[in-house]
C-alpha cells in the first residue's frame, strides 16, 4: 500500500523531515533528563551509562527525523515506526519514574531500568547460552515431532488399516497435555534432556498428525482421477498429489505444534533440565534476582516470536502458490 504513489504526489519532492521521528526523540531526551536530574530513591548502578544509551537513541532519532527521507531503507522504517518509537521512549520515562525515582511500584519486584541494564551487561553470556540451549532442545523435539506427526497423519489419511488403529489412540492420548508425562518421562529416559526432546516431540506430533490427516482427507477426489488417467502410480498419488494438496493444513498443524512445544520446553527446563531459559528463570527466582527474570522473559519472547516468524517465512516460500487463492 505504501508503495502506491498518487499521481499528484509523484511529481512532488518527499517531505524534508519526518515529523513523527523528530517527535519521538523528545521522550528519549526527557528520559535522560529524568534519569540524571532526579535523585534515585536507593543507590542504582550504571545511571550514566544508561543515560548515554538513551541519549544516543534520542540523537539517532533526531538525525533520522532530519535526514531519514534521504536514507532509503532505514529512513522508511523510521517513518513507519515513528509513533512506536515515541511510545517506547515515553514508556522509558514512566518506567524510570515509577521504579527508580518514586518507588510507586514495589521494589525489588519491579526492577529499575538501571538494574535491567546491569543484568544484560554482566549476565548476557549466561542468558545467550541458555537461549541457545533452549533453541537446540526445541529444534530437536520439534523436528522429530513434526516428522512423526506428518507420517502418522499421511498414514491415517491414506490407509484404512493405519486409520483404524491410530485414530482411537490419537483421540485418547493426543489431547493429554504433554507436561502430564513429565514425571514419568524423567524416570523412563536416561537423561532429562532426552526426556524433554521426547515430550516436545510428543506435543508437536499431535496437532501435526491431526491436521495432516484432515488435509489428506480433504484432497479433491478429482485430482486423484486426473492423475490416475495420466498414468500415476499409488506412490505418485501420495507424494505428488495428496501431500502437496494437504500442505496448507500441515502448516497449520506445525504452527499449533510450535506454540504448544514452547510451553512444554519451559516447563521441562524448570522441572528437570539443568540449562536453558526456563532453568535460568527458575534459578533467578531462587536468588530473588527479579531483574534477571525479566531479562529471561524478554529474551524468551524474542526467541518464541522469532521462531514463529521463521516458520511463517518458510510457509510463505513453500506455499507461494497460495498467494491470491487465500488471503493471508
Amino acid at each position: 500500500m505504501a508503495s502506491i504513489e498518487l499521481p499528484l504526489e509523484a511529481g512532488r519532492a518527499p517531505a524534508p523531515v519526518q515529523g513523527w521521528t523528530l517527535l519521538a526523540a523528545l521522550p528519549w531526551f526527557a528520559a535522560v533528563a529524568v534519569l540524571l536530574l532526579v535523585p534515585d530513591l536507593t543507590y542504582q548502578p550504571l545511571g550514566r551509562e544508561l543515560a548515554l544509551i538513551w541519549g544516543a537513541v534520542g540523537g539517532v532519532l533526531t538525525l533520522l527525523g532530519l535526514f531519514g527521507n534521504r536514507l532509503g531503507r532505514v529512513g522508511r522504517w523510521s517513518a513507519l515506526r515513528g509513533p512506536w518509537l515515541f511510545a517506547i521512549g515515553a514508556a522509558s520515562v514512566l518506567w524510570t519514574v515509577v521504579t527508580a525515582k518514586t518507588g510507586w511500584l514495589p521494589q525489588p519486584f519491579f526492577p529499575t531500568p538501571q538494574a535491567m541494564l546491569e543484568v544484560f551487561l554482566y549476565d548476557y553470556g549466561k542468558i545467550l547460552h541458555s537461549a541457545a540451549f533452549s533453541i537446540w532442545l526445541l529444534a530437536k523435539g520439534f523436528f522429530f515431532g513434526a516428522i512423526a506427526g506428518f507420517l502418522i497423519g499421511v498414514g491415517m489419511g491414506w490407509s484404512r488399516a493405519v486409520s483404524y488403529w491410530a485414530t482411537p489412540l490419537l483421540r485418547y492420548i493426543g489431547p493429554l497435555p504433554a507436561t502430564a508425562w513429565l514425571p514419568l518421562a524423567f524416570f523412563i529416559f536416561p537423561s532429562s534432556g532426552s526426556a524433554s526432546v521426547f515430550l516436545i516431540a510428543f506435543s508437536t506430533a499431535f496437532p501435526v498428525a491431526v491436521l495432516t490427516w484432515s488435509g489428506i482427507a480433504a484432497v479433491n477426489r478429482d485430482y486423484y482421477e486426473i492423475a490416475r488417467t495420466l498414468g500415476a502410480s499409488p506412490l505418485f498419488l501420495i507424494v505428488k498429489v495428496a501431500i502437496p494438496s494437504a500442505l496448507p493444513h500441515v502448516f497449520v498443524g506445525l504452527f499449533m505444534g510450535l506454540s504448544t512445544s514452547f510451553a512444554v520446553l519451559v516447563v521441562a527446563e524448570m522441572l528437570g533440565v539443568e540449562a536453558g531459559l526456563g532453568w535460568y528463570l527458575q534459578w533467578a527466582q531462587g536468588w530473588a534476582a527479579y531483574a534477571n527474570m525479566y531479562a529471561a522473559l524478554f529474551v524468551m519472547a524474542a526467541m518464541c516470536s522469532g521462531l514463529i516468524t521463521l516458520l511463517f517465512r518458510i510457509r510463505d516460500r513453500v506455499l507461494v502458490w497460495q498467494k491470491g487463492v487465500v488471503r493471508w
Binding site: 479433491n220 478429482d222 485430482y223 482421477e225 486426473i226 492423475a227 488417467t229 495420466l230 498414468g231 500415476a232 502410480s233 505418485f236 505428488k240 498429489v241 502437496p244 494438496s245 500442505l247 506455499l319 502458490w321 497460495q322 487463492v325
Partner: peptide, 26 residues
C-alpha cells in the same frame, strides 16, 4: 485421457508443471 468439466488443475503447480504431470507420472 479424460478432460473434465472443471479444469481441475493442481493449484500448487505452474501451468508448465501441470502440463508436465502425465510425463512425470509415467
Amino acid at each position: 485421457i479424460l478432460v473434465f468439466q472443471d479444469p481441475t488443475l493442481f493449484p500448487w503447480r505452474t501451468v508448465r508443471a501441470n502440463v508436465a504431470l502425465g510425463l512425470e507420472a509415467q
